[in-house]
């Protein structure tokens, strides 16, 4: 555990808490892509199956359980409790266009051709593109609430911090996981346009609106 990894994990945790708070306080999931949230639940459910096969640390297990349970709660809130506020008309990204190619790639490019390893690889690849329905939705509506942009900034920063963690681990521990690094870079690159808008608009007190 190094400082980049720890801040990265805390940023990920903060993102999830921000999203849940936004929904709970406003009793609304307006502006949030339910499809991205379904993908995140799928990401956690397929990645953390090793909860049952290996124990790493109390921190590790606690975080895994937190991510799995909160992602399921988020999907429940969006599709059941606050369903009336869900903006389905703008959430039109086709999930099969992500899940099918990512599933195929996980079968072809993995560290080991075993069920758990393929599911882990699927999860890593899927996470890298899981935000696309959310970004697609924002490009259709042309704006985002400020709390939603804070959520997205924390969520995007988490993987960017993991990249620093991987650089650190490569130099000081000789650790290198090509699949995680490539997918993590792709994931971070997808956020760059948003990061730019966040820094130039939201941090200056303006609402995030996209150029037409």
């Amino acid at each position: 555990m190094n400082i980049f990894r720890l801040i990265g994990d805390m940023s990920h945790l903060l993102a999830i808490v921000l999203l849940l708070l936004k929904m709970w306080k406003t009793r609304s999931c307006a502006g949030i892509s339910g499809k991205s949230q379904i993908l995140f639940a799928l990401v956690f459910a397929t990645r953390y199956l090793d909860l049952f096969t290996a124990f790493i640390s109390a921190y590790n297990s606690t975080m895994k359980l937190f991510f799995i349970s909160t992602s399921l709660v988020t999907v429940y809130l969006m599709y059941f409790k606050f369903r009336a506020t869900y903006d389905a008309n703008h959430d039109t990204f086709r999930l099969e266009f992500l899940v099918v190619p990512v599933g195929g790639l996980a079968f072809l490019v993995n560290h080991n051709f075993s069920p758990l390893e393929i599911l882990w690889t699927f999860s890593i690849y899927l996470e890298s593109v899981a935000i696309l329905p959310q970004l697609f939705m924002m490009s259709k509506t042309g704006e985002a609430e400020t709390i939603t942009s804070h959520y997205l900034f924390a969520l995007g920063s988490y993987r960017a911090l993991y990249i620093l963690n991987w650089v650190f681990r490569y130099y000081f521990e000789g650790f290198f996981d090509l699949i995680a690094v490539v997918a993590g870079c792709v994931q971070t690159i997808l956020y760059c346009d948003f990061f730019y808008l966040y820094i130039t608009k939201v941090l200056k007190g303006k609402k995030l609106s996209l150029p037409a």
């Binding site: 290996a54 080991n112 075993s114 882990w120």
Partner: peptide, 10 residues
Amino acid sequence: LSNFVVKDEL
């Protein structure tokens, strides 16, 4: 299952 390389990251 035994072929799974243990991952310590989240």
